[in-house]
Amino acid sequence: MVTLELAGAVKRYGSRTALAGVSLRLAAGEALGLLGPNGAGKTTALRLLLGFTRASDGGVSLRGCSPFDPAARRGVGYLPERLVLPERASVRGFLRLHAALAEIAAPEREAEVERALATVGLAGRAGDRIGGLSKGLRQRLGFANALLGRPELLILDEPTSGLDPLGVRDARGWLQAARERGAALLVSSHGLSEVERTCDRIAILNEGRLVASGALAELAQPGESLEDVFVRAVRG
């Protein structure tokens, strides 16, 4: 089953073309790493998939529906690149709100919030105001939010941004655990090693076009690392 798909998706902002006919598919249980230099169109692709913006041309579907249908976002966890959290809310209060928005049934909500807090190591800070958290702890909270309700699909934009090496290692574990229970992952990142360790397929965007796509073993020539593949795909 395809969980998300871009079919020749085009996105123009005025005269600038952010995506020029990109096609991508992600099947259930797969993990796809979206790579590309700054301004390649990675975040635009994620915005299209989440219904934040409308494609100028081409098709976009999320869990078989239009991304503008709220039902399409049921069972989707999202971590944005620029994570903005309510400064005055408590860590637990924020997750309670999002557990409700994620349609987690009321009797299970508290347990799910506590589970997410424990997973990301924030159980001891649950009563703190978000404004008092460091950047790394905020990113952990963003992960807790994305992991609420054990989503079938995780869409993560620069997920390890702001995390220290221990946090990066922990994040890898959370994503691995999500994969083991069958979740699909779409990870947009500049961290080539993270993508290499977490994802089984890679798509490389450059100037709004898909310039390479497939498993690393298919894309790499003998002796090439992911970095070599990336540089070759982007610089030609």
Partner: peptide, 17 residues
């Protein structure tokens, strides 16, 4: 402007709501 709407709108919540 600050992007805080995105987290809510990534949930099964309609823009109208």
């Amino acid at each position: 402007d600050d992007g805080s709407a995105l987290l809510a709108l990534a949930r099964p919540i309609s823009r109208d709501a």
